[in-house]
């Protein structure tokens, strides 16, 4: 295309010649400028996006007191404000989250007419209640083990401690524990 088009001699334009030379000062400055602009924009973008990630959360504390141990009878107690089940058996107290591990709905406790023995991880466990999720039909045994529905894993268990100052139970929902955890109180 280039060769066929022009029969007259090519005329160099007057003024500053546009030289396609990668090592020239002009192109260096050009790329420096473009690089500075892009770096500046990227930095700004990062700053703006970072500003959207909160550094302080005004949410309910992850660890809180729930009263003295003697206020929890044998069986399961539901603490609605914390979406938490507090259970007591012959070994002590334990806490199970009421938040379904599938998509975060609150599971409902269902008391069985009579306790039954179920197989959990090869061991026989006697359960008196189950937890059912209203959203997608996940079902858990009383110890939080999922056995039916889309739930991918058991309900979380949280660490319980006795607060040294007033003897109340302290729940720490940021620390998950195993299913044999008990607080002797």
């Amino acid at each position: 295309m280039k060769n066929t088009k022009l029969s007259q001699p090519e005329i160099e334009p007057k003024g500053a010649p546009v030289v396609e030379n990668s090592s020239s000062r002009r192109s260096f400055l050009g790329r420096l400028g473009l690089g500075a602009l892009l770096t500046g924009l990227a930095g700004q973008l990062f700053a703006f996006l970072r500003a959207l990630m909160p550094n302080v959360l005004y949410e309910a504390p992850r660890s809180f007191k729930i009263g003295t141990p003697d206020s929890f009878a044998h069986g399961i107690t539901y603490l609605q404000d914390h979406r938490l089940f507090i259970g007591r058996d012959q070994h002590g107290l334990y806490a199970i989250s009421a938040i379904c591990t599938h998509l975060g709905c609150t599971v409902k406790p269902v008391n069985l007419n009579q306790p039954r023995a179920v197989q959990v991880a090869g061991k026989l466990v006697e359960i008196a209640q189950e937890f059912h999720c209203p959203c997608h039909g996940s079902k858990y045994y009383g110890d939080g083990t999922n056995y039916d529905g889309p739930a991918p894993r058991p309900l979380d268990w949280y660490r319980l401690e006795l607060s040294p100052d007033d003897g109340q139970i302290l729940v720490n929902t940021s620390e998950a524990v195993k299913h044999d955890f008990r607080l002797n109180a």
Partner: peptide
């Protein structure tokens, strides 16, 4: 679509 394969689970989510 939650799939349980032994101890391994692929979440439906």
């Amino acid at each position: 679509t939650t799939i349980h394969m032994g101890s391994y689970t692929i979440s439906g989510a």
